[in-house]
Computed example of a mutant assay.
Amino acid sequence: MTTDSESYNKIVGPVEGLKSISTTFMVIVLIFGGIIISFLSSIAIRERKYEISVLRAMGMKKHMVAPGLWSEMLLITCLCLVLGIGVGTLAA
């Protein structure tokens, strides 16, 4: 089977154009997804006022409470990401 470069470029050209469009779309979806997850995390922190007040009453400083809650959410997000990628890989 032989092909010349002109025929190859004719076939591959549209696929290359689609690659840049899909990459742009993926970046936009990831940015908006990250923004939405940040907002949802902020709402979840507001709902945990009782827990935060207990930590503050036990003597934890404000600058220690927020990073602790954010790191907890980041850890859960990373674990879910790894689990999702693993299940997706097995399913594929």
Rank of each mutant, 00 (worst) to 15 (best):
G86Q: 05
I37V: 11
M58N: 14
S22G: 01
S22D: 07
I85K: 03
L81N: 05
A92Y: 03
A57I: 12
F32N: 07
H63C: 05
F39M: 02
V54H: 04
M60D: 08
A66S: 08
G34C: 05
I31Q: 01
V65I: 15
S7F: 02
S71G: 07
R46N: 12
A57H: 07
V82E: 06
I36Q: 02
L79P: 04
L40Y: 12
T23Q: 12
I35G: 03
E6C: 01
G86F: 09
P67Y: 03
L69V: 11
A92M: 12
I52S: 08
V15I: 14
V54R: 09
M58P: 00
W70P: 00
S71Q: 13
V87M: 12
L83M: 06
A57P: 00
L30P: 00
M58F: 13
K19D: 10
S5I: 14
S41W: 12
L40N: 15
I76K: 04
G33C: 08
R48D: 13
Y8K: 03
G59M: 14
E6P: 00
I31W: 03
G34H: 05
G68D: 10
L75G: 10
M26R: 02
M64G: 05
G33A: 10
H63D: 15
S71D: 13
F39P: 02
L30T: 08
E47H: 10
T77Y: 10
V65C: 04
S7M: 07
L83R: 03
P14D: 11
P67D: 02
G59H: 09
I52R: 09
R56D: 10
L30M: 14
M73K: 11
T23G: 00
S7V: 04
L55V: 11
E47W: 04
G59P: 00
V82R: 00
S42G: 15
I45A: 14
E6N: 05
P67I: 01
G13N: 10
M60P: 00
G34F: 06
I76G: 01
G59Q: 13
I11C: 00
P14A: 10
